[in-house]
Design a protein around this nucleic acid. Structure first.
Length: 605
DNA sequence: CCCGGAATGT
DNA sequence: ACATTCCGGG
């Protein structure tokens, strides 16, 4: 709001990738939507409303018309446009806000990840999925403020990921329409297409390089998760705030909640200072476009992150396997019918450590927590009820394909068998979606869904220095990231508190196995894999296109493809399988890593 | 309205 | 990949 007349604020500028996607240069629908949302001119047609990231298409046909104009598809209409939007559900870029007509919600985490993979979203909650409009000010973002205070001062600035915008922004580009009517408002900026290199952008890029990956979680976390824990208003009452902002309500719960120091691009330049965790340093070198596996760098990098990783990034699933970790039990807090659950779960962002102990002891049982995931929310997709079978997964090395997300099953799949992703047995798909949606969604969507205790955050260490890794993030992390909103408490939580095993717990995460060059994430996965194997055999599946994956898990043990990411499997069965040779896994992991690294992220927008 | 499958186009 | 176009079904 304070935006000076500017049009909307710069909101998810960060959501835009500086370089437009390689393949198709055309604007994507979600980008377009975002554009409309950020312009006041279109507020009569489409605007943020409701929860974070939620927007309502007030005039569907008009939006469709605009879209059609942009794409030069005169025949466009809302029906078609909405179909396109629906395709985003699986991609997790968007989801529908049920019960509200023409209302959808962006999953900004996804967008950020896609576009700025190097930014650590802070597991899950870092950025609320929805996005923060950037407060800073206008639609055109400013860069590094001349003075940090500039940026930081207003509380608003802090709360929103303004940092992203500053760092990332870009948009500005074209305007809503380029095709026909010249509605463009600010296209002048860079009509030049060259886009990113264009004036003004340079710095951004520079920033990109500098941006500290952890920035977000630390700071964001503070900002969002902090004090109120998930302080968002219950679904019931959503307050409307700034019309332009996706966040009607300030995400910032607490009072002064966030410490000032948080974000700001400027800060990013000086990583060490504001981050609680450690040293950070290695990042800078690594952040650049080139990322190296140099052991030293990696080590430093890992050190810098390990804590955060332990604290925040474990996938919820991971907790199952760590006996020492206290996992929020299914015991639901009696009262609070609301969703706040997530908050308690495990380490709410609060500084209090209470969360940690509130568990009585520990569960020595091997299978202590098995909570059930929510039931499949929608029933739609599995309607055909394919029985599960079909199977045959061929790839033993699913890992690599999975990682790439490329997974073209193409070759092997002969007859196109369209198998549903696991639906029956595990409701993962749905769950995923729901989870992603976030807590609000959970309730909204399903009514009485029982929220899984997301432990904390669940995510894997995302900070990946190299922008190219976007794909990894997407594939590997997105799910967790999205779904687990919870965030980690403050930075300094120590691993030990969490109970993470001492094995690696405290020291620098040097690989237990000896491979110390493996990124944390991978290491974790590895662990997960191992654990999972022990725990059960199967899971798989990745999330990307459900259709794409044609495999069925007939055989549980078969694919080890994704350890960490598979959409959650139903934990129901826990058969124990003898732990396979770790080495094998390791190598596979490495392969995967390699594959991932080589991937290119196709950005979005 | 909304949902996704299917075919088709870029 | 990402739509666009149709479309049957809820």
């Amino acid at each position: 709001m304070k935006t000076p007349g500017d049009t909307g604020f710069a909101f998810p500028d960060w959501a835009y990738k500086p370089e437009s996607s390689p393949g198709s240069r055309q604007i994507q629908l979600w980008c377009f939507i975002l554009e409309l949302l950020r312009k006041e001119e279109y507020h009569e047609v489409i605007a943020w409303q409701g929860d974070y990231g939620e927007f309502v298409i007030k005039d569907p046909e008009e939006v469709a018309r605009l879209w059609g104009a942009r794409k030069c598809k005169p025949q466009m209409n809302y029906d078609k446009l909405s179909r396109a939007l629906r395709y985003y559900y699986n991609k997790r870029i968007l989801h529908k806000t049920k019960g509200k007509r023409f209302t959808y919600k962006f999953n900004f985490n996804k967008l950020v990840l896609v576009n700025y993979p190097f930014i650590d979203m802070g597991s899950g909650r870092g950025v609320p999925q929805s996005a923060p409009p950037v407060p800073t000010g206008g639609s055109h973002f400013r860069f590094p403020p001349s003075t940090p205070s500039d940026v930081l001062s207003p509380s608003e600035d802090l709360r929103s990921p303004g940092m992203f915008s500053s760092v990332a922004r870009r948009l500005g580009r074209g305007s809503v329409s380029d095709c026909s009517d010249g509605t463009s408002t600010n296209s002048e900026l860079e009509e030049g297409v060259g886009g990113e290199d264009r004036g003004g952008v340079g710095p951004e890029r520079a920033f990109r390089g500098l941006l500290h990956p952890r920035l977000s979680h630390d700071s964001l976390f503070r900002a969002y998760g902090g004090p109120g824990g998930l302080g968002r208003p219950p679904p019931g009452h959503r307050v409307h705030g700034d019309p332009m902002s996706p966040f009607p309500v300030s995400p910032l719960p607490g009072p002064g909640g966030l410490l000032g120091p948080t974000l700001s691009p400027a800060l990013s330049m000086t990583p060490g200072s504001h981050l609680p965790y450690t040293p950070s340093p290695s990042l800078s070198p690594m952040l650049g476009s080139h990322f190296s596996f140099n052991p030293d760098d990696m080590k430093r990098y890992l050190q810098a992150h390990h804590q955060s990783v332990y604290n925040y990034h474990l996938s919820p699933r991971a907790f199952f396997h760590y006996p020492n970790i206290v996992v929020p039990q299914p015991h639901r807090p009696s009262a609070a019918p609301d969703k706040p659950m997530t908050a308690h779960h495990h380490a709410p962002p609060m500084p209090h450590s209470h969360s940690l102990h509130h568990h009585q002891g520990e569960e020595q049982h091997p299978s202590p927590f098995k909570f059930k995931l929510q039931p499949p929310p929608l029933g739609r997709k599995q309607r055909d009820g394919s029985t599960s079978s079909t199977g045959a997964s061929s790839s033993s090395l699913g890992s690599s394909y999975a990682a790439s997300g490329l997974l073209s099953n193409s070759s092997s799949v002969g007859p196109k068998i369209k198998v549903e992703p696991v639906s029956d047995v595990e409701s993962d798909e749905e769950v995923e979606v729901t989870d992603i949606s976030e807590e609000d969604e959970l309730l909204d969507d399903e009514g009485d869904v029982f929220t899984p205790p997301h432990p904390t955050n669940g995510t894997a260490p995302t900070a990946i220095p190299n922008g190219n890794l976007g794909a990894i993030i997407e594939d590997d992390l997105d799910e967790d990231v999205f779904k687990t909103p919870a965030a980690p408490p403050m930075g300094p939580l120590t691993p030990s508190l969490l109970g993470l095993k001492s094995e690696q717990g405290q020291g620098p995460p040097i690989s237990p196995g000896g491979t110390l060059c493996i990124p944390l994430k991978l290491r974790f996965k590895r662990r997960w894999s191992e654990d999972q194997k022990m725990e059960a055999g199967g899971e798989r599946d990745e999330a990307e296109d459900k259709k794409v994956r044609a495999e069925k898990q007939v055989e549980p043990a078969r694919r080890e493809s994704e350890n960490g990411e598979g959409p959650r499997r139903s934990l129901s069965l826990s058969l124990r399988v003898p732990p396979p040779p770790a080495q094998r896994r390791a190598s596979s992991e490495l392969q995967r890593a390699t594959a991932q690294l080589s991937l290119e992220s196709h950005g979005a927008c």
